[in-house]
Write a protein that binds this DNA or RNA. Structure first.
Lengths: 366, 366
DNA sequence: ACGGTTATAGCAAGCGCTTTCTACAAGCTA
DNA sequence: TAGCTTGTAGAAAGCGCTTGCTATAACCGT
């Protein structure tokens, strides 16, 4: 049968209690005894029974990291960083190691809740939620309740790249400045002279989508006002009134970017720029623009969001908004482990930086 | 305090045993009783104590999926597919749900073993190992031993995209035909007329790297023989003897591709094609080729491996070798859950398909 | 109407660990 | 030397669940 604590104790000629204390390192044990125990552990090739340990201690070493789409490097980078931050610094022995695991919700609210229940069931030590949240009221209610229960059970909760949740259950929130990013990207295009800008948005019910779009619209609004104040239209006409018409929602994948871009350019062939929900979508947008026989950026500028690793290698290199995904992931991991104090108010906003590259340029003269 | 099975039992006016049996659905319970229990569960908002359950049942509902690099879509796609396959088909109630989690080893052998120990400790129901294995003898020994112990403890082990492991501990192996893929890619270039082909390999100690390279070399060897038989050099000279000189090892990232390509073209400016370890590396290779003022594919053809989603949008579209990552992941997940019978001999080889696109073309004459 | 099935449900013994409380030596102080 | 504190280790009571075995009705054929 499998080796148990008692077996180790017998071999080391100590009590099970002593073995437990050596393994957990939370109680003074004489050096000689410790050594004897450790040798017995090695000799017998003992592996702690996690469930038994968790049952007795009423907590486990499981840390869950929830992501919307594990195949998307946006999440992969954050999750990997968090997992690294959680795993490292584990004291060599059985003590410190946490089991940092990532759970892929696929963007489904049901699976998100299921995973949280499963983690709750395992008495997870901490949970990190990444990516934009769904804005469905029922889901928000359910999530708030679930997070509250997790917090009550002693689970640390950290949000990474997702807006704050009311209720005090969350230990720390790292929110991305998606509004600011959207705004800066639009301002960049405006300053280049663009006024008719198509927008390929992500799923409409996600906070990330909404915030980026809000920033975008705000910048356009400001430009319209400025143009009006400056006495009429800008370099390339004026900002269209009906922004809804220049917006198409899709998923965060290439195909959506392709289809939406075709649709946008059909609706308004005079668009001089396309802003995409993220870099993957932007790639699809580029393909669509090219398939229409247009050049980037001479005929149409294209911009993305996230600055994923492949974006700099796109041709032309993609103008995008950089989010410090890795750094945010590391910080989230550290916060989940209590290795770092939460920011004041529990909330920190993480900046989004414009990366102006070759895929955007001034529009051709009318 | 937290609600326990006993609380539910009391409220439903049954014994704890009955509640357990309702929840697990592995024992006949009268419909009326079941309903009463289920209502009590809902009323009290009861969540099973996983550790207690696992301790008593000597098994858990944890399924671990190990990946080398979670930020790489290659792994993300497989892991996501496996997770989906494992999660779905869970009978609605507390019964079937497995907690499918992915663990990021970062390619480190130590972390790989650590994760396996952690999963062993949790009495994981199954483990899926993805990606190429390390060829270090010590690590192989340690892994074989560890997998043996896991198997002894009743954990199902499935390999996905990794060569078979001797010893019988593994339930099923899905091996990618990396050799065949490497060969077909080289044959494609050879048939286009290329003879001096640079190779940007992955980390030398990985099976995937070695197999792809072996396929590549075999095709070149065959071409050399054919050229000789056919009376001399082919369209663009003959296949160089010293293939080592045309091979540079790096990591699976863009930077490695960039650096290695500069190095290759420095060593031999007459190269007419570059084969990269994977698509990400190929992107870096493309950037290097361009920075040297050369055109793709007119001056230098470039090819990748994996057919990641962004590859079709590269400019020019990347010639690559498609691996059915999603399908393989699903199958691995189903095998891990015992939803599918293992292939004969426990091993299935998964084909690799050449995707000839615009980044490869015949070399310019002489 | 009665022994024998069959369908349900309860009893109680663990599963392997953690941790409180207690016990025992030593090493001090006074 | 008596009486403490301090350092170290053991005894034992659970943690909350599963499951083999047992008990009780209800039901059957004859």
């Amino acid at each position: 049968m499998t080796v148990t604590l008692a077996d180790v104790a017998a071999r080391a000629r100590v009590s099970p209690a002593t073995v437990s204390r050596v393994l957990n390192g939370n109680y003074p044990v004489a050096a000689s005894t410790r050594e004897r125990v450790l040798r017995a552990v090695d000799d017998l090739d003992y592996v702690l029974n996690g469930p038994a340990s968790s049952l007795a201690a009423a907590t486990s070493d499981l840390v869950g990291i929830l992501v919307n789409d594990i195949a998307d490097p946006f999440f992969g980078i954050m999750a990997g960083a968090a997992q690294t931050a959680i795993g490292e610094g584990a004291s060599g022995r059985a003590g410190g190691e946490k089991l940092a695991v990532v759970c892929n919700t696929g963007g489904s609210p049901e699976r998100e809740l299921t995973y949280l229940t499963l983690l709750q069931r395992q008495r997870a030590a901490a949970v990190v939620l990444t990516g934009g949240a769904l804005e469905d009221p029922d889901h928000i209610t359910a999530m708030t309740a679930k997070l509250g229960k997790l917090a009550d059970a002693g689970t640390t909760i950290v949000l990474c790249g997702r807006p704050p949740v009311p209720g005090g259950a969350v230990t720390a929130t790292l929110a991305f400045d998606n509004r600011g990013g959207g705004r800066r990207l639009a301002e960049h295009l405006i300053s280049l002279g663009h006024r008719r800008i198509g927008y390929v948005a992500g799923p409409g019910e996600r906070t990330t989508t909404r915030h980026r779009l809000e920033g975008h619209r705000a910048a356009l609004e400001a430009a319209r006002a400025a143009d009006a104040a400056g006495g009429g239209a800008g370099a390339a006409g004026s900002v269209p009134e009906d922004q809804e018409r220049l917006t198409v929602h899709g998923l965060y994948d290439r195909r959506s970017g392709y289809d939406a871009t075709l649709e946008l350019l059909r609706r308004d062939p005079d668009l001089t720029a396309i802003v995409a929900a993220n870099d993957t979508v932007a790639l699809g947008a580029c393909a669509a623009v090219r398939d229409l026989g247009l050049r980037i950026p001479e005929d149409v500028s294209v911009a993305g969001f996230d600055d994923l690793p492949f974006s700099v290698d796109a041709v032309p290199a993609l103008t995008t908004v950089r989010l410090p995904l890795y750094e945010a992931g590391v910080r989230a991991g550290r916060l989940a482990m209590g290795k770092e104090a939460p920011p004041p108010g529990g909330i920190a906003t993480i900046g989004a930086e414009l990366m102006a590259r070759a895929s955007t340029a001034p529009p051709r003269k009318g």
